[in-house]
Computed example of a mutant assay.
Amino acid sequence: MTRIETTFAALKKKQETALIPFLTAGDPDITTTAKLIRTLAENGADLIELGVPFSDPMADGPTIQAASERALAAGTTVEKVLQLVAEVRTDCQVPLVLMGYYNPVFRYGVERFATAAAAAGVDGLLLVDLPPEEAGEISGVLKKAGIAMITLLAPTTPPERMQRLAAAAEGYLYYVSMTGVTGTQKITPDDIRAAVENIQGMTEVPVGVGFGITTAEDAKAVGEFADGVVVGSALVKIIADNAGSDQLLPRVATFITELKQGLLA
């Protein structure tokens, strides 16, 4: 079993929901990101989505856009992100999913990327601007490398397409809880419960929910029906507000602990 499969299986046995925080690699710098990943893992993160910074992050709102800009200004590259994963893997086995856009991967070289990502210890890849129907160039090489290609589903996904994508999903499915970009709206759990449960009936892989989850109360409400909750913009904002301060890691640790406790309550 892969790290993703093992983690979700263990959580299912304990009847727990996965906490999946997102942060941007290289924000504020690569060295700090390594410390942040370890802090997340030590304080309750079950999986971690690591954003690969890109100059045109069309699915992201202002908070994560700014994080990408800071990371790029700090010199973050795909190569440095993979080196970061390899360094973290020396003492941290939490599943790591790279999340971003196809252009950086394409420019790096699809086969070269898959080989290097697998060697570094990447468990999954989520490319928000690459529809599964157009992912043939990369899906095969990722599968060969043992890296799950994570699929996005949205409220606007037509039922027939949703069923097809759900049936073919790897690792876990990421359900975007609302239309729009990240970090701009508040989630309403009751409005998405039926949709998530419907997707769960279409697939054998876990279903995680992201967009609009900012507090422990949000996490608890969504965790009552989802297999995982993804928290991005709220965490990225804490990182931005405390960058360069000795309070950064303690405040991130407190936030993640509160989210995890919300899921366990």
Rank of each mutant, 00 (worst) to 15 (best):
V230E: 06
G26M: 03
T90Y: 13
G100N: 06
E170R: 05
A168C: 11
P57T: 12
A9Y: 13
T17W: 03
L165W: 14
D191H: 13
L50S: 03
G121M: 14
E170D: 10
T157P: 06
T257P: 10
M178P: 15
A226R: 06
A120D: 12
V252S: 00
I64N: 02
E5N: 15
M202V: 02
C92W: 15
A118M: 15
L127F: 07
Q261Y: 06
L248E: 01
P159M: 09
T31S: 07
E69N: 13
K35W: 11
M99E: 04
A45L: 06
Y172I: 01
L248M: 05
V222I: 08
V94H: 07
G262Q: 03
L126P: 09
G26R: 05
G146N: 07
G223H: 03
A45I: 14
D29F: 06
D227R: 08
A34R: 08
L50E: 12
R89E: 12
R251E: 01
L82N: 02
T157I: 11
M99F: 12
G100R: 05
V141N: 05
E5H: 10
L125Y: 05
K35C: 11
V81Q: 04
L36P: 01
F22G: 00
E133S: 15
N43R: 01
A216D: 07
L84G: 00
S245N: 03
G232R: 02
V196R: 00
S233A: 15
K13Y: 15
Y102R: 06
R193D: 03
R161N: 03
Q163D: 15
D227A: 02
G75K: 11
I4V: 09
Y102H: 12
V176N: 08
E137Y: 14
T7M: 08
T31H: 14
T2N: 13
T188Y: 13
K144R: 09
Q83N: 13
A74Q: 13
F211L: 06
S68G: 15
N43T: 10
A41C: 11
D60M: 10
K260E: 04
Q93P: 06
G201C: 08
V176L: 08
L72K: 10
E258H: 04
L259N: 05
V176Q: 08
L264N: 10
G109W: 11
L19S: 02
E5S: 13
E224Y: 14
L165Q: 13
V88H: 11
T182Y: 09
F255D: 00
I192T: 00
T151L: 09
S139L: 09
G180V: 05
I64R: 02
T6S: 15
S68A: 12
